[in-house]
Amino acid sequence: DETGKELVLVLYDYQEKSPREVTIKKGDILTLLNSTNKDWWKIEVNDRQGFVPAAYLKKLD
């Protein structure tokens, strides 16, 4: 059920640097789980959840 889920576009590649982070690729469109922290957003990638720098993402309307 995708209702109410926010999507984000990945602006730059990011390689995870800790187990709490996930790797993302430029151009991916992913589900945003939590954006309350202005610097690190929690997203879902391939059934994995983790954090990436918010500056690497853009919210889609």
Rank of each mutant, 00 (worst) to 15 (best):
L33Q: 03
R20V: 11
T36W: 08
K25Q: 09
I24C: 08
G50T: 05
W41L: 02
V10E: 00
L9V: 10
A55D: 09
D28V: 06
W41A: 03
V22G: 02
D13R: 02
K26P: 03
T23V: 04
L32Q: 00
K58I: 12
V45E: 04
Q15I: 15
D1C: 12
E16D: 05
I43K: 00
E21D: 04
I29K: 05
W41E: 00
G27I: 01
I29F: 06
D61W: 10
K59V: 10
K26D: 02
V22L: 10
N46V: 10
V8Y: 08
L11C: 06
T31V: 15
V22P: 01
S35A: 14
K58F: 12
D13F: 04
D47A: 08
A55F: 09
S18Y: 06
T3V: 11
V52E: 01
V10N: 00
A54W: 02
W40P: 00
L32A: 03
I29T: 07
D61T: 13
G50C: 06
T36C: 12
Q15R: 10
T3I: 13
N34P: 02
T31M: 13
L32W: 01
P19V: 09
D1Q: 15
K42W: 11
G4C: 11
V45Y: 13
Q49R: 10
N46D: 14
V45A: 11
N37D: 15
G27V: 00
T3L: 14
V52Q: 00
K5N: 10
E6W: 10
N37L: 09
L60A: 05
D13V: 02
K59F: 07
E16V: 07
K38R: 13
A55P: 09
R48C: 05
Y14F: 06
Y12C: 12
I43P: 00
E21S: 05
T36I: 08
S35E: 11
Q49K: 11
K59I: 11
E21R: 04
K42A: 08
V45R: 11
W40I: 03
S18L: 08
D39I: 13
Q15D: 12
E2I: 14
W40S: 03
K42G: 05
K38F: 08
K26S: 08
T36H: 11
T36V: 10
G50K: 02
E6N: 12
K38Y: 08
D39N: 12
D47N: 14
E2D: 11
A54M: 05
V52R: 01
L60F: 09
E2T: 15
D47K: 10
Y14L: 01
L32S: 02
K17D: 06
